[in-house]
């Protein structure tokens, strides 16, 4: 195994990123793993380990990992953590940092394209609006230029893909 380069300041970088504020409180009890619905099915997903690797400074391994994208954002770990580490928010902070480094899971990259193009994750098409009219539902404007402008700010660096999705 190749020795991993460590970045002792990585934990500070995470703790300064919104959502990552409490990461240094983790004492590795593993309560997050016990309640995690994803880990129950996929043992490779291990939030406790991701936090440990982050605190140890394994910056590149963590940010390029496919696992940070497997958090389902259910917040069970955040509810139960005795140290209020807010693990789901830490995972979000790690993903935000990964995006800045150019690592983004392919399925998320696709969502980014959709939201940039439409200002919505599920655009309402002309066909959808015709169906809505038939059902007596109000029409939805297909675009919102103001929100499209805001969406263009999302993930401003050029992402490369992590993992194949599906």
């Amino acid at each position: 195994m190749v020795a991993t380069k460590l970045d002792p300041k990585f934990k500070d970088e995470v703790s300064k990123t919104r959502g990552g504020q409490n990461i240094k409180r983790c004492y590795q009890c593993g309560t997050c793993n016990v309640g995690c619905p994803v880990r129950e099915i996929e043992e490779k997903y291990n939030p406790r380990k991701i936090i440990r690797m982050t605190i140890l400074g394994m910056r590149e391994r963590v940010l390029s990992s496919e696992f940070i994208w497997l958090c389902s954002a259910c917040y069970t770990c955040s509810e139960r953590c005795p140290q209020d580490v807010r693990i789901a928010d830490v995972m979000n902070a790690l993903k935000n940092l990964a995006v800045k480094e150019g690592h983004v899971h392919s399925s998320f990259a696709k969502r980014l394209e959709v939201i940039e193009a439409n200002g919505r994750l599920f655009p309402v098409s002309q066909f959808d609006n015709a169906k809505r009219k038939e059902l007596g539902l109000p029409q939805i404007p297909p675009k919102n230029e103001e929100v499209q402008e805001l969406c263009k700010l999302v993930g401003s660096s050029k992402p490369s893909n992590v993992g194949g999705g599906g």
Binding site: F108, V147, G155
Partner: peptide
């Protein structure tokens, strides 16, 4: 119905960029 209402910016968008997502 307020016609300009749009995307709430859910976790998949938060995963990419939390602050912009809060703005949306």
């Amino acid at each position: 119905d307020l016609p300009d209402m749009t995307c709430c910016s859910p976790p998949p968008v938060q995963s990419l960029d939390l602050e912009t997502s809060l703005a949306i």
